[in-house]
Simulated scan of single mutants.
Amino acid sequence: MPPDPLPATARPVLFILGPTAVGKSALALEMAERFGAALLSLDAMQVYRGADIGTGKPTAEEQARVPHGGINLVEPGERFTTADFLRHAAAFLAQCRREGRPVIAAGGTGLYFRALTRGLCEAPATPPALQAELDALPLEALRERLRRVDPSMAEPAASPLDLANPRRIARAIAVAEISGKSLLQWQLETPEPLIPVQDFTSVLLLRDLPDLRERIAARVRSMVSAGWADEVARLVTQHGLPAIRDFPAIGYGSLAIDRKEAARKLDISFPDKALSEKALHRISTQPVAPDIVEQIIIDTRHYAKRQLTWFRKESIVRQINLSRSATLNFLEWWT
């Protein structure tokens, strides 16, 4: 069963939404400190422990300044669903309500925003065997299978589905095959949301495209300079190469392969849980191949485009272009 809707609070939940690198986190942290609020991450990749640099997770110092929810909930490789996120969010919001603390929810996972504010449909879970079968299919094969089992969800002009996202397509296929009913029909029968429309306000942060593209490139390069490759090498050592190679966050898989190649050149067995700190350091400090960095930048830009497409379908959000507007102009309507 879905969590019960929360009672109204003195100040509505503020959603700060937008594509990666637009400036959501910095603004949310600034506002949380200004208003004594807690922060709920709406980033499906920040739930994984140890995946910090590459997901843009708040630093330990930032987490000490402001209470955070939605981060460090499971290990890489563990299953974490939107329903799991809603259960965590319900407990986090309830705690904040008891403390009289307002909440800012910030991030770029549109499905989390939609589930919190529209409810989560109770379609059946995907069996592991079917999930593995669908995970092995390329994108075009998934689209073709969706056209066979649920044509309404496969039509680009009418489908609410992100048809560039293989995980979302696989979910729609699974629901149709298991239940004999379209995912869209399940969604129409969705229970009441955790945060109804009268209890939140929202803003979509935007930037001019050249500005956003440059910020994405700078962000990726900054992450690499901050030790992202070292983070990935350590995660591979802890969880194994397959788990990190298949990790859904952008960049982790390609960096895992890059670190394995770096270890090969150094004649170091990798991954190996018995690897010494000295050997791991040698692997981690090898430069990342420039083509890997450039591909991560390209993939991140494509992801940002998909995020914008999703959020622009949400009619309830206000839009602010940070390339043209002062950051804090909209504070008045949250006070």
Rank of each mutant, 00 (worst) to 15 (best):
F15P: 02
I16Q: 09
L17D: 04
A21F: 03
A26F: 04
A28M: 04
R34Y: 10
F35P: 00
L40R: 00
S41W: 03
G69A: 09
N72Q: 12
E75N: 11
R79F: 08
F80A: 01
F85P: 00
A91M: 10
L93N: 12
Q95D: 15
R98P: 00
E99P: 03
I104S: 04
T109S: 14
A115W: 05
L116G: 08
L120D: 05
A125P: 04
L130V: 01
Q131F: 03
A136W: 05
E144T: 13
V149E: 08
M153S: 13
P160V: 00
L161Y: 01
D162Y: 00
R171A: 04
E177W: 03
I178N: 05
E189G: 01
E189W: 00
L194W: 03
I195W: 08
V197P: 08
T201E: 13
S202F: 00
D208L: 10
A217E: 14
A218Q: 15
V220Q: 10
R221C: 09
M223C: 11
E231M: 08
Q238H: 10
L241R: 09
R245E: 15
S254A: 14
I257P: 00
I257V: 15
K260H: 11
K278W: 02
S284T: 11
P287M: 05
V288P: 00
P290R: 00
I292S: 02
Q295F: 01
I296D: 06
Q307I: 14
T309W: 05
E314C: 04
I320R: 12
N321I: 07
W334F: 13
W334S: 05
